[in-house]
Design a protein around this nucleic acid. Structure first.
Lengths: 151, 151
DNA sequence: ACATAGCCTACCAAACGAGTAGGCTATTAA
DNA sequence: TTAATAGCCTACTCGTTTGGTAGGCTATGT
């Protein structure tokens, strides 16, 4: 399960990517996306620190994307809020950590199986951008070639 | 990240699936797999309650698989210990829950993207059995067709 | 009858998740 | 020039989950 925070962040970014005006305030965003206001503020701060969005202060201030929507992937956002995508520390490329109790990583069968899970998750998340998610709904389905109702 | 508990459970099951003798005690298992003994006991209890393993009490007692290793999937074990595999409650087939703050589930772009992640994770986890993981290391790689070093 | 080993419940400390609260500062319209 | 707006920043809270420990009870084989 991804955290509520990451979900909010993605929704906020999608809203920013879609807006017509040049910026939107935290308050409006919160109302429009049904995100607790103060919580959203913190999320926006993190997004800003990470260089994904920018802000303007004072009256008529607000937030807007810093980079084009087709350069921001779901994977980046998820890693920022929820940490590594890998299901095991020893499978993370960003934050590799040996499993403390593992005797032989190369021979670990659990690791071997989850490597596939990690790879396919990354294949989707690092390839799907905000722009993909906003565009024609089916375009995102085409990325992985899997139907939403499969399995 | 999967929980330590689920990881231990999988390792224990793999050990049970591989053993030559007819049963193995919690103590031996704990030592062999480097799992805290008392913690392992609880895990084994859960596995038993769920019908995956059986036990014999008293001297020379121990645990053994209840069903053949090729009928126990990683998905079953993971769901037992960590709950739904789905990254969003609204994508779980086992424990569906609407996202409280979602306006229109059908139109949710976040959901749409993560549906692919969920599907590919399930494709691996519900198809890979203990037997697969034990057999020739490459057989498990063939299941998904992805190389371990891909992406 | 005693050692072995499973069964069961309770407890615990630390970390995490999902917020709330409150004040400070920059900007701009009146 | 002074409000009002809206972003910036830190701290705190509170319930839940994680990763165990602890301790005793009960069945079984020698």
């Amino acid at each position: 399960m991804i955290s509520q925070k990451a979900k909010y962040a993605l929704r906020a970014l999608l809203a920013l990517a879609e807006m017509e005006s040049d910026s939107i305030s935290a308050g409006e965003l919160a109302k429009g996306e049904r995100i607790p206001r103060k919580f959203l503020e913190q999320i926006l701060m993190e997004l800003k620190r990470d260089g994904l969005i920018q802000s303007r202060r004072g009256v008529n201030g607000g937030y807007f994307l810093q980079r084009p929507a087709d350069t921001i992937t779901f994977g980046q956002v998820l890693r920022l809020f929820d940490g590594p995508i890998a299901p095991l520390p020893c499978l993370s490329r960003v934050a590799y950590r040996r499993c403390a109790d593992c005797k032989d990583e190369g021979a670990c069968r659990v690791r071997r199986v989850f490597a596939h899970v990690a790879n396919s998750a990354r294949a989707v998340l690092d390839q799907t951008t905000l722009a993909d998610a906003i565009a024609d709904p089916d375009s995102v389905d085409r990325i992985s070639g899997l139907s939403i109702n499969a399995s």
